[in-house]
Amino acid sequence: MHDLETLRYPIGDFVNGKTYSAEDSQQHIAALDEFPVKLTELVGKWGDDRIDTPYRPGGWTIRQLVHHVADSHLNAYVRTKLTLTEDNPTIKPYEEGEWAKLPDSQLDIAPSLVILRNLHHRWVTIFQSLTDADLARTYYHPGSQRSFELREALAMYAWHGEHHYQHAYRLAQRNGWA
């Protein structure tokens, strides 16, 4: 039996409030760039039996997880653009658990994998063009009641992609699918 906390956070929890260098940001951009291909290579040809397997007891299925990542990264992309065009905008949080129950989370994962590939292409293009001053721009998250610099949001979404990739990858390892 695997430790539930390790199944839940296979690479550890994201630590808010850290400082990131320009080199860190370049690594995070590279991670965002590679993520959609890496995820597609892992789960893109899985059948429904695998896709409908929860990555941990009480957790989402891989189908829900893939759709969640697309939803989450779409929101983050919009937050990035708002941050670059407004002064410390207040972003709109969303109920990710409730989104995972909507009918589109039962669709085939192919549309979300395509969304991720194209979305990340656009998102990475923006991040690659940013200056240090741009990465210091902030948005306000009312749920956290604090402002986030874009460089921290970039780090968080690089972590987020790897976090969910590892859910699927480690499930595949445990089940002999890898």
Rank of each mutant, 00 (worst) to 15 (best):
A172D: 09
L107Y: 03
H28I: 02
L84M: 04
L39Q: 04
D24T: 14
V43P: 13
G17R: 03
Q64E: 03
I91E: 11
G97K: 15
E86M: 05
I29T: 06
T61Q: 12
I109K: 00
E96N: 14
L119E: 12
G17F: 10
L116R: 00
N88Y: 05
L107A: 06
L32Y: 02
H141K: 00
Q26C: 11
L135D: 15
A22T: 12
V114H: 13
E41P: 00
D71R: 06
G161N: 02
A178Y: 05
R170P: 06
T138K: 13
Y94Q: 14
E152C: 01
P103Q: 14
W99T: 09
H2I: 06
L4H: 13
S112N: 10
P10K: 02
W99A: 13
E86V: 09
I11A: 06
R79C: 13
V66N: 03
P111C: 11
P54E: 00
A100C: 14
P103I: 03
R146Q: 11
Q173T: 07
D104M: 15
A172T: 02
A30V: 00
H121C: 05
Y55T: 02
H2K: 07
I109H: 00
H141W: 07
W60S: 01
T138G: 01
R50N: 09
S105G: 11
E98V: 06
Q106Y: 07
A172N: 13
G176K: 09
H28N: 06
I11N: 09
P111A: 05
E162P: 02
L74G: 14
R151V: 05
Q64L: 02
K38W: 05
L113R: 02
A136G: 11
A168R: 00
T131Q: 14
Y157R: 07
R63F: 13
E95D: 05
D3S: 14
I91H: 12
Y169M: 01
E98D: 09
E34G: 04
H167V: 04
L154G: 04
R56L: 00
T131F: 14
A31V: 12
R8N: 14
P142A: 12
P57N: 15
Q27Y: 10
D132R: 15
V69A: 06
L84N: 06
L135H: 14
P54H: 04
I115A: 14
L150C: 09
H121E: 08
L82G: 04
L39N: 05
Q64G: 07
R146G: 00
I91Y: 12
G143L: 07
L7P: 03
A155P: 04
V37A: 10
R174P: 08
I51C: 01
Q27P: 08
W60G: 04
